[in-house]
Design a protein around this nucleic acid. Sequence first.
DNA 1: CATCAATGGTCTAAGACTAGCCCAATCAAC
DNA 2: GTTGATTGGGCTAGTCTTAGACCATTGATG
Lengths: 241, 241
Amino acid sequence: MDESARLMAVLRPVRAGNAFEETVERLLQAIRLGVVAPGQKLPAERELAVQLGISRVTLREAIRALQDAGYLAVRRGRYGGAFVTYVPPVPGATDLRQVVADMGAADLADALTFRMAVECGAAQVLAATELTAEQRATLHRGLSDLDEASLADYRRLDTAFHLSIAELTGSGLLAAAVADARLRVSDLLDAIPMLQVNLDHSAAQHRAMVTAILAGDPDAARRAVAEHLEGTAALLRGFLS
Amino acid sequence: MDESARLMAVLRPVRAGNAFEETVERLLQAIRLGVVAPGQKLPAERELAVQLGISRVTLREAIRALQDAGYLAVRRGRYGGAFVTYVPPVPGATDLRQVVADMGAADLADALTFRMAVECGAAQVLAATELTAEQRATLHRGLSDLDEASLADYRRLDTAFHLSIAELTGSGLLAAAVADARLRVSDLLDAIPMLQVNLDHSAAQHRAMVTAILAGDPDAARRAVAEHLEGTAALLRGFLS
DNA sequence: CATCAATGGTCTAAGACTAGCCCAATCAAC
DNA sequence: GTTGATTGGGCTAGTCTTAGACCATTGATG
């Protein structure tokens, strides 16, 4: 890795796009990751604009774009708001090869590697932490929510479970990194059919992750997450070959 | 971690500041991490503006600010440019308590946790990878560079070593995350005196990291990095108490 | 059924940012 | 010396973005 490559990495673009584009991306992240579930509404425009650090005009442009794209339905008046109408595509319905072609092979490898590093890191840090009763309960709740989940809710709750591990470390930076990593593979996951075998495997691996974290064993936690994510990567390779 | 907390995490500010502020931060990152060493110059304004995705006007404002702050010296004409005049402060000369007060206790914990997760993750991923002869050589070169480093160069080469681990994974996202994490603790590290004992410890830990990575042992790699970073954190706690 | 608080819809003036152009300075090469 | 390529310095017109104010709509509540 020579000096010029490092220069390129550090002196990368300051902005991913204009405020409008970045806002659309951020809202899409909230919707597609299921942070705001279908039927729920986004915070009020004035409040949301403050949270996102942009003007209400720009926020409204982004909301309008998502409305036109069919992700949101906006209702006026008290108790109105921007309601999520997006329902995740049926897994397996989209063409994985097309998705991969759209994002590029290099980006695909980058995203998978990034996710592996950052999620393993989060689990390992959490395993090395003294957990409160409440934190343990959150992990257990994540597991049981997933066990009882309908197929329609599964991806959303899976995302929530993975995110909660990062959030429980107390590091906002880490939580943001995990959310980012998840979003980057979101299209891929949506293109994989959900088979009962795979769901059973995932459930067992999720339990292994929680067990290792609660046992305070960072190595085991790291290994459990790595195995889980490697399983997903293997599935992808399988559908691609 | 309830839903509202997750909303806060995903719907965080789209922009960390205006273009000027973000550009200053980015250039400072390049300078303080030693990506552009003292005496070297930044790329030409027109080229740099394109790389950073901003206008030349905004870039010039940022350069002017860094010039006023004593980080850069600008010379006109052919073979001119913005030359780095910043030399890292003598470790231990700045007041650690002041630095911590400036960044806030919560941000401090966040940054340390983030760094731990992301650097452990990078090492673990790299250890799980088949390395080429060239990649191994890069790791060895990083070690020997550090061994031969003068005190003035030590921090810069230490940063380069840690960064190279992330870069060798081939994931630009991961490299950017590690660079970001490093920068967030940069002020703290600059405030810690460099004692020979600590340097010897660090050298041994660096060797352990490389050994584990080359041996293809992710658990050992993770443990080596965790131990190394925990050592730094312990030093910090020591100087603060 | 009237009220009213919360919410989206709209406008305007000011500031931030950009693209593009030309000028001024420098210094290696001829 | 003179030249010419490269670099920072500076200007302008136009676009993007913001802050703040005011209007329109809705529906739970009394």
